[in-house]
Design a protein around this nucleic acid. Structure first.
Lengths: 234, 234
DNA sequence: CAGTGGTCTAGACCACACA
DNA sequence: GTGTGGTCTAGACCACTGC
């Protein structure tokens, strides 16, 4: 890991370990530079990352402060990589309904920007929060990048597997959502009446080089899902 | 405006003016540095901003590419400063229902982090897209920062007024949303049946120094609102 | 006016892509 | 191997806050 990312991580840990709250002040840049044995520029770089993530804010002439965004029960749409990342510590259960390899249809070719003969993993899962159905997921992964996947892996966090075993990290993502009625099958999975409304979230995940590797459709239970989006202005 | 922000703006303009599409390549950093008569570091700084905003992505060893996020009809939750910013060019009408000065209640004191005797502007508006009701807004602005507001100003973009007339720019913001039934009054404004579901969006806006200046509750018509969130990973 | 963050530079060197 | 982006540094100077 490069130095400025390492420092950013350690500052995050420092905030958590010292239980710093919103608007608490961090050490000044010169002190951080000395602690981490780095130049001022590198500290600034690290703090810029934390600012972009919404963890801190910097006030010229005054200091660097914590921006606490830990909100129990809210799904952070700035990190849409699945529930396990965003609802940490919650009681999440996953039921894998199927894992298969298919050829893409027109929608998938457009959304994954893949070739018509490429192999694509199709994963269907139901996820439960505290025993209650919260989201039904249909995900497509290009086999070209996600070279292996099975039911055991999908029962856990797929993004964790991608990161730790395949060394795949997203570079950027797009999320779209709207409220829409669910068909009978999906309503059944979420244990609500047919034609009931759900929150339909579509995610596209890109590798750092711009290639799409994942396209997902998620149906959230409208009464059990709350979302959060932090923004920083430049 | 500082140099790197100016350069970032000019690169954005360059993308728009040349009608560059997703995955089109930008000039290389050395060329940009020469064009803008700046150092490589300053160009990198400018590109980092555009990357954080989701407008470009950079691939080591390969180049800098456009990440097109112009999605007609989608509200960008990474810039929740009102419809006029995010649905540019759309046919938006605003009906100002009231502008008044009040004293905060407990909820407002908590969400605005203001004193109990501070004056607060209360603004209620309905907004229409192509003649159809799309969102009902209740906004609170601390008079301490937003020193003046009236119906005429609220009929236009309030954030534009803040930026251009009061020199107020947000430093960061938090948005929370969920799907929830609307009471009779709000359902009436949105011209739907009472108890119909709406998308309830709560925004908190902070100044660059960390003070809250705006807290808003927005009820979107569930069938006419679609949202978008771009993310970048560091 | 002392303290703190912000900007900008020049340059050395590293990492990755692609042909 | 060449070209492209990424990291890191030291230092000069600017801008804002708050006592």
């Amino acid at each position: 890991m490069v130095k400025y990312k390492q420092i950013a991580q350690e500052i995050t840990d420092y905030i958590v370990n010292n239980n710093l709250q919103q608007h608490d002040q961090l050490p000044v840049i010169d002190d951080l530079a000395q602690s981490f044995n780095s130049s001022k520029s590198t500290i600034i770089r690290a703090l810029d990352i934390l600012e972009a993530k919404g963890q801190i804010y910097q006030v010229q002439g005054s200091g660097t402060f914590v921006r606490d965004i830990i909100l129990p029960g809210f799904i952070n749409l700035n990190r849409p990589e699945g529930l396990t990342q965003t609802l940490i510590g919650s009681d999440i259960e996953t039921r894998v309904m199927s894992v298969s390899i298919i050829k893409p249809d027109a929608t998938m070719i457009e959304n994954l920007r893949c070739g018509p003969n490429e192999d694509v993993y199709l994963v269907k899962r139901m996820r439960y929060l505290a025993g209650q159905p919260i989201v039904y997921e249909v995900s497509y992964y290009r086999k070209k990048y996600v070279i292996f996947l099975n039911k055991e892996i999908a029962a856990d966090s797929i993004f964790k597997y991608l990161r730790e075993n395949l060394n795949i990290k997203p570079g950027f993502s797009n999320s779209y959502f709207e409220v829409s009625p669910m068909d009978e099958e999906i309503a059944g999975y979420l244990e609500v009446a047919p034609e009931e409304y759900g929150i339909k979230l579509i995610n596209q995940f890109f590798l750092p080089n711009g290639a799409t590797f994942d396209y997902s459709i998620l149906w959230y239970h409208k009464d059990r899902s709350k979302f959060f989006v932090p923004s920083t202005y430049y």
